[in-house]
Design a protein around this nucleic acid. Sequence first.
DNA 1: ATATTAAAAGACCTTTTGGTATTTTAATAA
DNA 2: TTATTAAAATACCAAAAGGTCTTTTAATAT
Lengths: 143, 143
Amino acid sequence: MFNKETEYALRGLVYVQFQQMLGHKPGIVEVAREIEAPLFYTGKILQRLVKMGFLMSTKGKGGGFYFDTTKPDLPLKTVVQAIEGDKTYAGCGFGLKECGDENPCPLHEQFAPIRAAISKLIGQNTVQSLARDFRKGGTILGL
Amino acid sequence: MFNKETEYALRGLVYVQFQQMLGHKPGIVEVAREIEAPLFYTGKILQRLVKMGFLMSTKGKGGGFYFDTTKPDLPLKTVVQAIEGDKTYAGCGFGLKECGDENPCPLHEQFAPIRAAISKLIGQNTVQSLARDFRKGGTILGL
DNA sequence: ATATTAAAAGACCTTTTGGTATTTTAATAA
DNA sequence: TTATTAAAATACCAAAAGGTCTTTTAATAT
């Protein structure tokens, strides 16, 4: 569905949020281990998320990643859009730029509701809501 | 949604089928031009499709690409699967291999119907059915 | 036979994605 | 104030995706 970077980012964000709900501020090593993603790559991705303003961090002893709780909940769609754009839930099945309601490709009508469903799903679910679901148990996030 | 190679392949196959319905056997140059795809890359992809048995071809004068009409209609899913696998309509949104009905990731339940819809859509539509739709007009395929 | 046509084969090349490793900077505790 | 800790920055590296180009092979018309 999504590319690797997006997948690791989503898992990482939900993990950090979950830990934050437990009063913990995880670092790169912990996040990478828990979401089962490559260590250095996870670090790079978390740092990109910080630079994009989705996540906060502090260096040094006791450092790690956390969320600014004064900010509104973060929809998955915002993260996906920032990392890989909207090709997954917006592009034409045939890859035609001109494809649209006026100028439909042979699949346009049938793909429309699917694209809408994906868009809605990642637009409504947030890092925070998923972390809550995860907290209730019953779902996994790696390992 | 799909990667470039898959997109060009689907457009190319539908175009060839459409031309075949008109009694014409197009070559690489024509196909690439009409589906608006890079010439040499289109050639490479069509040749791969031939090697995979989805398409037929003849060399030399009057040569080009065509379908074996004795074969059953070709579902898009078969082509997609052969080129890029099933990651688009089968993988977990978080990229977890262990994710499933017994071991769901936080998005599993919500993504399940979407994956099913994509799978159904490309399983039911065939190169032939789309070419017929295209023939009736109202849809585009490039250009 | 041979010239022409067009696909097949295969050698490259570029960009993007995915990933690794090292050095630098900042925070904190002793 | 100096170790220590951990993120930031940065420099690489490998594989895959996307794309180009040339040579070879096969079909056909003359």
